[in-house]
Simulated assay, not measured.
Amino acid sequence: MNDWDVEIRPHLTPYFAYGAAALILAAHVAVGVLLKVGSTGVIFQTADQVAIALLGAVIASVVLLFARPRLRVGAQGIAVRNLLTYRLIPWSEVVDVSFHRGARWARVDLADDEYVPVLAIQAVDKDRAVAAMNTIRGLLERYKGINSR
C-alpha cells in the first residue's frame, strides 16, 4: 500500500544537524570528563559527570530531529513528516503545494486557508528545492488533474 512515486528529504539541513549534534555531545562528554580535574571549591561526584554527558545526549537528540523531515507523494496522497509530526493528506484534501516568496520551506495548501508546512523542501537547498517543487507539481497535476501555480 505504501508505494510512493517520490520521496524528498532536505539536503543541507541534516548535515548541519549531524555536525551540531556531534559537537554538542562531544563538548558535554569532555566537560563531564574534565569536571573533576583541578579544584574549584565544589566537590563533583561521578554522578555529576554522567549527568552532564547524558544532558549532552538529550540535547543532541533534540538537534537530530532537524534531520527527520521527509515528504512522500503517491497515489494515496501526500505524506508529510516534520520534526515531531507525521500526516498523510489524501488528494481530496490537497488544494495546492506552494513555496511562497521569502518562505523558508514549502507547504501543502488545504481548504479554508489552512496549510501544512513541508520542512523537507527548504529554500536553503536552492536548485534542489526548485527541482523538488517541479516534481511535486507534476504529480499534483497527475493525481488531481489540475494545473497548479
Rank of each mutant, 00 (worst) to 15 (best):
A111I: 05
V118Y: 10
V94E: 03
A60S: 11
G145P: 09
A103Q: 14
F44M: 07
E93T: 00
A22S: 12
A75G: 10
N2M: 06
E7G: 09
T135Q: 13
R107P: 02
G138K: 07
S92I: 10
S148K: 00
A53K: 08
D112E: 15
S148E: 07
A79I: 00
V108E: 01
L119P: 01
A22L: 14
V33E: 07
T13K: 14
R72N: 04
I52E: 02
P90R: 05
V94R: 04
V130S: 14
P10A: 11
L34I: 02
L12F: 13
I52W: 08
V6L: 06
P90I: 12
R70P: 06
H28Q: 06
P90Q: 06
L140Q: 10
G32N: 02
H100A: 15
A47F: 03
T40Q: 00
A22V: 12
P117A: 10
V33S: 05
A75V: 06
W4K: 05
W91S: 04
Y15P: 02
L88N: 01
L139M: 06
L64Q: 08
I146V: 15
R137E: 04
V94T: 13
Y115N: 15
L23N: 08
G38Y: 09
A103D: 15
L35T: 07
G145H: 13
S61H: 03
A26N: 07
Y115W: 09
I78Q: 00
P14I: 04
R137Y: 01
A132S: 15
Q76P: 02
D113G: 01
A47R: 11
V37Y: 02
P117S: 07
L84F: 15
L25E: 05
S61D: 02
D127R: 15
G56H: 08
S98F: 03
D5V: 02
L23V: 15
I8E: 07
Q45M: 06
A106N: 08
W4F: 12
I24Y: 02
D127C: 06
K36M: 11
V63L: 00
N2W: 03
F99R: 11
G32P: 00
V58N: 02
Y15K: 13
D3F: 06
P117K: 12
G41C: 08
A60M: 05
V58W: 09
V62P: 02
Y86C: 00
M1E: 06
N2F: 10
E114N: 13
